[in-house]
Structures are given as C-alpha cells and as structure tokens.
Amino acid sequence: MSSTAADDQFYREYILDHYKNPRNFGRLENPDISHEEDNPLCGDVIGMDFRVKDGVIEDIRFHGRGCAISQASASLLTERLKGLRLEDAKKIGKADVLGELGIDISPARIKCALLSLKVLKVGAYGLAGNDEDEE
C-alpha cells in the first residue's frame, strides 16, 4: 500500500530542496528589523533579519527550526523579499505564500506554511509603527 505518488506530490522536490538547502539562512549583523515568531502548537520557531535601505529590503536572513513546510516556506519567502520595497513586501498575503509552495496544505499544517509570513508581517509593520492583526 505504497502512497509514494501522494507523498511526492506533497513533498515536491523543490520543497525538499529548500528544506535541505535553505536560501538566505543565518543571521545578519546589526539588522534594521529582526523579528521572531513561534508556532505554539509544535514549538517551531522562525526569525528573520532585514537590512533595509531607502525603503528597499537590501538583505535578508532567516533562522529557526521547524518542519519541511515551514522551512521551505521561509526559504521561498526570503528569495521573494530580497530587493523588494518594504511597502510592497507588506502586500504579500496568505495566497501568495501558499501559491508559491504550490501544494495542497491541510488545515493542520497551514500554520506551518504561514509562520514565516507572520514573521514578515509583524516584523515589517512593527518597524512602520503600526499594529497588524495576525493572520
């Protein structure tokens, strides 16, 4: 009763690749924004450091620990954020992140997929001095 097909669809090659070789992984020295969030359900943590110059995300790193979904999602998000205007970064929403992952995420795992977005939102809006409701 192999379920290989279903698993491979869920754990697609590029997701596993981002999990095993996360992009922009690590810390920045003296970041302009640094924020961390955890998933209380599983204790997973993701943090992001941003260097912002003239409103543009010049450099970004993420750190933390978590499952393949949360780590791949964070890795993909950092790729997208690098070089983006902070104002534009704030417009990134759930659908963008889930679309980028490109897999069906079950309700039980949605928090894993969106943990990095929460870091971005709370972190970026924090710098702007605004409150932002959580997703």
Partner: peptide
Amino acid sequence: HPHDLATIADRDQVCLRAGHHCAMPLM
C-alpha cells in the same frame, strides 16, 4: 521533523501524534 513524519504517516492512514504533547517543560 515530527510533523512531516505525521503527515507522511497520515497518507498511509497511520494516526501518529507529533508535537510537544502538552509537556513543553519536558521538551
């Protein structure tokens, strides 16, 4: 990660718990 294992097990209809089991001080 335990969550990934639980998701894969679920594909085989194997119900497995992954998490801190409401025992975070122990974790």
